[in-house]
Simulated assay, not measured.
Amino acid sequence: MELNLNRQQILRMIDDALAEDIGTGDLTTEAVVDSTQQVQGELIAKEEGVIAGLAVAGLIFERLGAKIDYQQQIEEGVRVRPQTVIATISGLAAPILTGERVALNFLQRLSGIATKTAQYAELVADYDVRIVDTRKTTPGLRMLEKYAVRVGGGFNHRCGLYDAVLIKDNHIQVVGSITEAVEQAKEGVPHTVKIEVEVETLAEVKEALASGVDIIMLDNMPPELMEKAVGLIAGQTVTEASGGITAETIKEVAQAGVDIISLGTLTHTISALDISLRLGSDNNDRPKG
């Protein structure tokens, strides 16, 4: 999978990250490394996982304005074994050392998200259901984190408040009812925009159905109640399960018959994949995939 995203937006993220880390200069590298010194090295995945963000890492070194040769050794989205060389790098030592941490931060986090997404997708592979993300992303990194979800085999929910209507419990509390909120939404947005409503009870399911929504989110429902709700909806609209779903319960949720399972944990509760940059070594015996 290629990094088919808005290049300028990615570069802004990279520039912000580099400015945060470098500030007025890399004191250590400038003090101890000769500006003409050349190095070569390898980016190594130290644990099993799905790799995402290789192109982002390359852009970081490119952004530092130096002659650096960065070569991916595997395809984006590949699951690797521990000690796999995922990219090689050579060129001036100083900019490589300066960009090392920012490149690894992006690679490790995006690969962690892709790995976790793949885990959940594999758990429900036997069911006709999609695993999707939420807006529970790191501020400023949403586009890349949602990209990593796709690399891991998941799908994206709305990207922001601007591309879909999702009427949640607090909206209903403010407006007064599901019916009133949906009616106002239909009057206020183009007909091309889908309208989703969050429900917690069977009575709310019936009200949402009567309102003619496009998607019903079954929020924090136990699987047995969720199954009743899906039966009540009977294919009249898309069904989404959300809230408190874990690796231990996700199969039960899929068995309830929902179309979509949304998981904030894909992006807000992840472990970064352990990846390191090793300079000056010649490790030709390491696995390449």
Rank of each mutant, 00 (worst) to 15 (best):
M1A: 14
M1V: 14
L3H: 13
N4F: 12
N4Q: 13
N6T: 10
Q8G: 02
Q8K: 09
I10F: 02
A17M: 07
G23T: 03
G25Y: 14
G25H: 13
D26I: 09
L27Y: 11
T28S: 13
T29D: 02
E30T: 10
E30M: 09
D34N: 15
D34I: 09
S35H: 12
Q37G: 08
Q38M: 13
V39H: 02
V39P: 03
Q40E: 14
L43F: 15
A45M: 00
K46C: 03
E48T: 15
E48W: 06
V50C: 09
A52Y: 04
A52M: 03
A52L: 03
G53T: 11
A57P: 04
F61I: 11
G65Q: 13
Y70N: 04
Q71L: 07
V80F: 09
Q83Y: 15
T84G: 00
A87L: 06
G91N: 01
T98R: 12
R109A: 07
L110H: 04
L110F: 05
S111E: 12
A118S: 14
A118V: 07
Q119S: 10
D126N: 15
Y127Q: 06
Y127S: 04
V132R: 01
D133W: 01
T138N: 01
L141D: 07
L141H: 09
A148T: 12
A148F: 14
V149K: 01
V151W: 03
G153K: 07
F155Q: 13
H157S: 00
C159M: 14
C159Q: 13
G160F: 08
D163M: 06
D163Y: 09
L166C: 08
V174T: 14
V175G: 08
G176Q: 13
A185Q: 03
E187V: 06
G188L: 02
V189C: 05
T192E: 11
V193T: 15
K194H: 08
I195W: 03
I195L: 02
E200D: 13
E200V: 10
T201N: 00
E204L: 00
G212P: 11
V213H: 00
M217T: 11
L218F: 01
D219M: 01
N220L: 01
M221C: 06
P222S: 07
P223M: 09
P223E: 11
L225F: 08
E227D: 09
K228S: 10
L232R: 01
T237I: 08
I245S: 00
A247W: 02
T249E: 07
I250Y: 04
K251H: 11
E252S: 13
V253G: 02
V253A: 04
A254G: 10
Q255P: 05
A256E: 02
G257H: 04
V258P: 01
V258M: 01
I261Y: 04
L263Q: 03
L263C: 04
T265I: 14
T269V: 07
T269I: 03
T269N: 04
I270V: 15
L273E: 09
D274P: 05
S276Y: 09
L277F: 07
L277I: 11
L277E: 08
R278M: 12
R278D: 15
G280L: 03
D282C: 12
N284S: 15
N284L: 15
R286C: 12
